[in-house]
Design a protein around this nucleic acid. Structure first.
Length: 669
DNA sequence: CAGTGAGCGAGCTTCCGCTTGACTT
């Protein structure tokens, strides 16, 4: 009797395969990687070809032992992990562990490597009829990636402990993420706001039957771009425009096609869920995980926009039946990944069954599913057609010649917009104007404005920029940001924006001063080129590592000896210590920020930092409500007068409603 | 429901990428 064992990464994938392969196959999950470099030591023998030392992490030991036991008496072992670099390495490490641990003195375990790019019955059965050997070059490329990350992370972190602050960390991915945040903050700090004016004129047609009014905006003065920089210039333009004659100098109309977005990847799903639902990436991922485990969507950690042919044809059928032929493009739309660095082991994120338009589940699950469902349907729908009109109006007075503009857009055919309650563009309908037509002046509206600094990152936009540079992977985007919080490198500001702390800024200053090459945005891309060469058998891991390690190690040693210890800037505040009268400063402790007396250690006074909840304490009425954290990290709300006032609450205190009786009536009526 | 920081310098901290549960307050 033949026994078949299949090993994949995830239990959900295992469950799906069971349906396709039948009862002759036992399918088990490895839960990701089964071996790794040891956490507590360097684990790379740099003097002997960078030989890595692999160990089975403690929390995986039980599972791995069971896995090995299950291989006993197996005739065919199939390694069906993901078809990418990491998947190949998981398969190889699995095999190594099984060979090592198998008690039976049987010959080298017979195994077969099986790869498929989509988990459909056809693709899976086809893959099982064409197994192959492990790709040693691909495994070597993964090891190179892993070892390089270890060299960088475990050499530079201790340097930070010595030169900046204990327990900090640096890495190829996290430090570039931090660099982006720090550089954006410095752009904002250096930004000088400039005054400018927008001048809008309300005009109307002169036709007795259609005296439509519309708004035109000043665009040019004497043929040059209008730059109205101050009140004086604005006054001049306004007084001229009040007495000008207006006539239409040009009317241009064209039809523009608006194409739908590609289906979701991890990163684009995180963007969209942040914008539309206000989810942070961590929340998006946990909700998506639940949808995935319930069989409602495809795998949620992917960088691919590929769609299985079956999914596309089912979606086309759905579109034709529910929206009609007009909404179906002649040919299916195919999407391509932009990044050369994508691994594309999985499909795009899409509903597993497009005819399931809504689902049962938590409110979060319903909302996220709705986003995913719509994105899939629209990506196969016809483009929208929008009529765009550009009108130019001349206004002449005295010696100055003014040009004003209006643009209109009108939806001619809604196409994929139909799926959304609100079209992604707002219609602006202009009257049908004729070139040379004279217009009447009705009103003028000059507006003083100031240029705005670039926006701070949100978690989602930071991930977008990391992905743009090929830095990090779908499985690490959200965890990388958590690391930046854990190290107190960044903090959340109002409106979900993130800003660097003094520790974050100092760390980046140090890293960029001595190791700018590693934290350059192109470092990962260049590393990927080297990894490609290894994967293609054109290069080998040890010399590739050596090329990096030689100069790197020398630099680390030099910096360790010669560099000065960095000083982390201390934020002072207007707050005065109520014990000694000295100003108070912001300190970063185990539980986040707090106020401490600058006279420390002579004065040990501390105070809770007002987190701007904007509420007064409901008990003592004088203190402010501040957010605090317990030793276990759970957030609660307390009074800034603690320990004098003992107010504390697990939930955010509500502002008192002045007249509760009225509220009851409103609810009834 | 509630402490934190500096330096003294014990002993520890740290990377990226692949995956799920198991622990409470």
């Amino acid at each position: 009797m033949s026994k078949n064992l299949v090993i994949v990464e995830s239990p959900t994938k295992a469950r799906t395969l069971t349906q396709y392969l039948g009862s002759d196959y036992q399918i088990l999950a490895s839960m990701g990687h089964v071996r790794d470099l040891p956490k507590g030591e360097f684990g790379v023998d740099v003097d002997h070809n960078f030989e890595p030392k692999y160990v089975i992490p403690k929390n995986k030991m039980k599972m791995v032992n069971q896995l090995v036991k299950s291989t006993e008496g197996v005739t065919n072992l199939y390694l069906a992990t993901d078809p990418d670099r990491e998947g190949e390495a998981i398969a190889w490490n699995l095999l190594k562990v099984i060979e090592q641990k198998s008690k039976a003195k049987m010959a080298r375990q017979k195994y077969q490597r099986v790869v498929f790019h989509e988990i459909t019955k056809d693709a899976v059965l086809d893959a099982f009829s064409h197994p192959r050997d492990l790709d040693q070059n691909l495994v070597e490329a993964q090891q190179a990636r892993r070892i390089l990350d270890r060299l960088v992370g475990y050499k530079l972190s201790p340097l930070l402990w010595k030169k900046v602050k204990s327990k900090l960390s640096a890495g190829r991915v996290q430090s570039v993420a931090l660099r982006l945040v720090v550089e954006r903050e410095r752009e904002i700090e250096a930004f000088k706001s400039e005054e400018y004016w927008v001048i809008e004129v309300e005009v109307s047609r002169q036709q007795p039957e259609a005296r439509d009014q519309f708004v035109i905006t000043l665009a040019k003065i004497n043929g040059k771009k209008a730059e109205v920089k101050n009140q004086k210039e604005a006054d001049q333009a306004v007084s001229d425009l009040k007495v000008s004659d207006y006539s239409v100098s040009s009317v241009e109309s064209k039809e523009v096609k608006k194409y739908p977005n590609p289906p979701f990847t991890t990163s684009t799903l995180q963007q969209r869920a942040a914008n539309v639902l206000g989810f942070v990436p961590k929340r998006t991922m946990s909700v998506a995980q639940s949808l995935y485990e319930n069989g409602l969507i495809t795998y949620m950690r992917t960088d691919s926009v590929n769609l299985s042919p079956q999914a596309v044809s089912a979606t086309r059928k759905f579109i034709e039946e529910n929206y009609g032929r007009n909404y179906l493009p002649e040919k299916p739309r195919a999407y391509k990944v932009k990044s050369r660095l994508a691994q594309e082991a999985h499909e795009a994120i899409r509903p597993t069954n497009v005819s399931r338009q809504s689902i049962d589940g938590s409110p979060d699950e319903k909302k996220l599913y709705d986003l995913i469902w719509k994105r899939m349907v629209v990506c196969q729908m016809a483009e929208a057609v929008v009529n765009e009109t550009a009108v130019e109006v001349e206004a002449s007075a005295t010696s100055q010649k003014y040009l004003l503009r209006a643009t209109g857009q009108q939806i001619k055919f809604d196409g994929w917009y139909k799926v959304y309650e609100k079209a992604p563009i707002t219609e602006q309908v202009l009257p049908t104007l004729v070139k040379g037509e004279a217009l009447d002046f009705k009103n003028i509206n000059p507006q003083q404005k100031f240029t705005e600094p670039p926006a701070r990152y949100t978690e989602a936009t930071l991930i977008r920029d990391l992905e743009k540079n090929g830095i990090g992977r779908p499985s690490t985007y959200a965890p990388t940001i958590s690391t930046l919080y854990d190290r107190l490198y960044i903090e959340k500001m109002e409106g979900k924006k993130i800003a660097p702390t003094p520790i974050g800024k100092t760390t980046i200053d140090f890293l960029m001063k001595y190791f700018s090459d590693i934290f350059d945005y192109s470092f990962t891309a260049e590393m990927e080129d080297d990894l490609d060469s290894i994967a293609q058998g054109k290069a080998e891991m040890p010399p590739t590592m050596k090329k990096f390690w030689g100069p790197f190690e020398a630099k680390v040693e030099k910096v360790a000896e010669e560099a000065d210890k960095m000083k982390v800037e201390v934020e002072t505040t207007d707050e005065i210590c109520d014990k000694c009268g000295k100003p108070m400063v912001v300190r970063y402790g185990r539980f986040g920020k707090f106020l401490a007396c600058s006279g420390f250690p002579d004065c040990k006074n501390t105070k809770a930092l007002n987190e701007e909840t904007g509420m007064k304490c409901p008990d003592c009425k004088t203190g402010d409500v501040v957010t605090r954290r317990t030793k276990r990290g759970k957030t609660f709300w307390g009074c800034s007068n603690w320990p004098k006032c003992k107010f504390a609450s697990w939930t955010k205190p509500k502002l008192e409603v002045s007249k509760p009786e009225e509220k009851g009536q409103t609810l009834q009526g």
